[in-house]
């Protein structure tokens, strides 16, 4: 529709004026297409296949002659499940199979991938790492993902303010892509919201190989009133970028899981990241007023 196009133009224009640098930096993490090296090659290099992952599956009906195509379309819109995919014999069609594999590849890369080294610095975060020495150890030793060694604790002591109202922690968790996709929008929105309510926020910490329980160690060490940890959720096939926020009032060692407040499903198709930031700012305000999280909150 014309309205959409026009809006897009304006927003692009405004964006261009506003924040060239930040935007460019985020784009930098996306793998660039192969560069065009010379004039002669240009006509070939532009010939990409359509992006298999670009197909909106909920609008892609493959059953050739269904009894009721309209009903099928509605059914597909009613669920993100992979229905209406048809078959060859008793097996799926080729593009269905490859799309499934593509989505799984994305999910696995998201688990096994690492947040780029420069990411923490880019968002002024203090980087530390848990006692896990590799992603593999992280996956098999949940206990180590909840601990920091003396060296990393020392980094926190030196570089982070003690006793702030809200300590923000970002962690890769089970999806590095969730961090990269959501933090650039979530963090500024949340901090804008907190600042406008006069709530002091400490230096954001980035923890590599972390489980939720890392907040207990950080809470004990820095004694903020509230710790909020933003970490990547275990990816589903369609949602490799989903993030959760766990919030602990007076976080400390031995804290019960039920004492934490959780907001999950933060991603483009769920709660969009900027809106999530605003929501979390409000939620943190209410938590500070109630002086409690988890089952003790509301």
């Amino acid at each position: 529709m014309g309205v959409d196009t026009n809006i897009r133009l304006i927003v692009e224009q405004v964006l261009a004026e506003m924040n060239q640098t930040a935007k460019g930096a985020v784009d930098g993490s996306v793998i660039p297409r192969q560069p065009v090296t010379s004039e002669e090659q240009a006509e070939f290099t532009d010939d990409y296949l359509d992006d298999l992952a670009g197909i909106d599956l909920q609008r892609y009906l493959q059953v050739p002659k269904p009894v009721n195509a309209e009903l099928y379309k509605d059914m597909k819109l009613a669920t993100p499940s992979r229905i209406g995919v048809w078959r060859t014999g008793v097996r799926p069609l080729t593009d269905t199979l490859l799309r499934f594999r593509a989505d799984h590849a994305m999910a696995q890369d998201s688990v096994l991938g690492e947040v780029p080294e420069k990411f923490a610095a880019q968002y002024n975060m203090v980087p530390v790492v848990t006692k896990c020495s590799s992603k593999d150890e992280y996956l098999t030793r949940p206990d180590l993902g909840r601990l920091l060694d003396a060296e990393n604790i020392e980094i926190l002591r030196k570089q982070c303010e003690k006793g702030v109202k809200v300590q923000v922690v970002v962690a890769d968790g089970l999806s590095s892509k969730a961090v990269e996709a959501n933090i650039p929008n979530l963090l500024p929105a949340m901090i804008q919201g907190l600042n406008s309510m006069g709530i002091a926020v400490g230096t954001t910490i980035f923890v590599k190989y972390a489980r939720v329980g890392i907040m207990d160690v950080i809470g004990e060490e820095l004694k903020p009133e509230v710790v909020i940890i933003l970490l990547g959720e275990r990816p589903g096939l369609g949602t490799g970028e989903s993030m959760s926020a766990y919030i602990g009032y007076n976080a400390r060692r031995g804290m019960l899981e039920s004492e934490r407040t959780v907001v999950s499903n933060i991603h483009k198709g769920g709660l969009p990241s900027a809106e999530a930031g605003a929501h979390l700012a409000d939620l943190l305000k209410r938590i500070l007023d109630a002086k409690a999280t988890g089952v003790n909150f509301k």
């Binding site: 669920t79 993100p80 499940s81 992979r82 229905i83 995919v85 078959r87 008793v90 097996r91 799926p92 269905t96 499934f100 989505d103 799984h104 275990r234 990816p235 589903g236 096939l237 369609g238 949602t239």
Partner: peptide, 24 residues
């Protein structure tokens, strides 16, 4: 499950197609 992809529990299991294939 449709194509083995559980959109609620976020895991993968055997699909409708797989059931037919195993029976065959």
């Amino acid at each position: 499950i449709p194509m083995g992809d559980d959109v609620m529990l976020n895991y993968q299991t055997t699909s409708y197609h797989d059931i037919s294939a195993l029976r065959e």
